[in-house]
Simulated scan of single mutants.
Amino acid sequence: MPRNPYYQGPVSDHFDGLRFRNPAAEPETDRSLKDVLRWRRTAPDNPWPPSVPVTPARPDAAVPGLRITMIGHATVLIQLGGLNILTDPVWAQRASPVRFAGPRRVTAPGVALADLPPIHAVLLSHNHYDHLDVATLKALTKAHAPLIITPLGNDSIVRRHVPGARLAALDWHQAHPLDPAGTAQAHLVPALHWSSRGPRDRRMALWGGFMLCAQGRTVYFAGDTGYGTGAIFRALRARFGPVDCALLPIGAYDPRWFMAAQHTNPAEAVAIMRDLDADRALGIHWGTFKLTDEPREDPLHQLDAALAAQGIAPERFRALHPGQVADIPARGAGA
């Protein structure tokens, strides 16, 4: 039997001793080489611009309320009650295991590495190269020594490349404190996705999203996820109550026959917003790396259409550009 290079642990309802899997009754994310070849053979010619202008932000060292700054793709700075938290930090020029090939970023990071405030924690959702960048984690560890919270198995990958990293590995439904008093917590929650760093390690490290709870506020970071039956999101609403702000992926969704099980489109992101009873949502995972077939601006148009169709005010769900900042009011406090 093959050996899992990242994690050895007890069998569970989502780990068979070798590979992790999505919750039962949800769509299968595995795709065959035949599927990949079919996708590439039928892909439309939708070139992205070589670069898109960005006006970088210079974040404050600390924020008393809840502020979100978009850096790019799934990399977001969450500032809440004096804590500074990064999600899936990638400052690399390519989302790739090599520097000379693979998807190249078309937007500069919305915050320069040198301009980051003190980073207390990193929420690392899974091990795909557009979410786990070793060079960035090395730089952050050297400059800030943040706590890196990640699903099972990904800690082994980080530790191999960043020996000094402070790491906490969680299973779904586990939590870890973000402050010494334990008043702020990061909860790892299920996502409908998969993992791999190469051709032989598919689903050998766990993936997930995070629910951040601090100062009576809740922020949901989806990482990468499909929508599936929607059951995992309705379960989050039942467990955590209404969400103040949901960071939801709105890009990398075409072709649907290939991507639907693993990546939401904008209409499904709006459905997640409603399932979570989220007061606000911010669109992430779009416009930085060309990973799939849709034109770069298509997520914006589809999001506008989905919000209009469901009667949701556009200011409640914004698609952030790198460098843009959103201050999230307390629930019910208005814009």
Rank of each mutant, 00 (worst) to 15 (best):
V111I: 12
L124G: 02
A168M: 00
P163Q: 01
D133T: 04
L113Q: 01
V158N: 10
P117V: 01
L167W: 06
D115V: 02
L123V: 04
A112T: 09
A114Y: 01
L167F: 06
L140V: 00
I119G: 13
A114Q: 15
G153Y: 09
G164A: 09
L147R: 09
H131L: 13
L116R: 10
L132R: 06
L137N: 02
H161T: 04
L170A: 02
D171G: 13
V158A: 07
R159Y: 07
S125Y: 05
D130Q: 07
G110I: 07
H126N: 03
H120I: 00
K138R: 08
R166M: 07
V134F: 00
A135F: 02
L137M: 06
D130L: 04
L123W: 15
K142W: 15
P118S: 05
S125M: 11
L147D: 06
A143L: 05
A139E: 12
G153D: 06
G110T: 05
G164C: 07
H120S: 14
G153M: 04
P117N: 05
L140F: 06
A135Q: 15
P151L: 07
P146Y: 09
A168D: 02
H126I: 00
H126A: 08
L124D: 00
V158I: 14
P151T: 01
R159M: 13
Y129R: 09
G153N: 03
V134K: 01
I119E: 13
V111W: 06
L137S: 05
P151W: 00
L167R: 10
I157Y: 05
L140T: 10
L123A: 13
L137W: 04
V134H: 00
H128G: 07
G110P: 03
L137R: 03
R166K: 15
S156D: 12
H131R: 12
I148C: 10
A135I: 08
A168V: 07
H161L: 04
G110E: 03
L140D: 15
L147C: 13
P118Y: 09
S125I: 11
V122Q: 14
I148W: 12
P118E: 07
D133M: 15
P146M: 10
N127Q: 07
L140A: 12
L137Y: 15
R166P: 13
S125D: 04
T136N: 14
R159E: 14
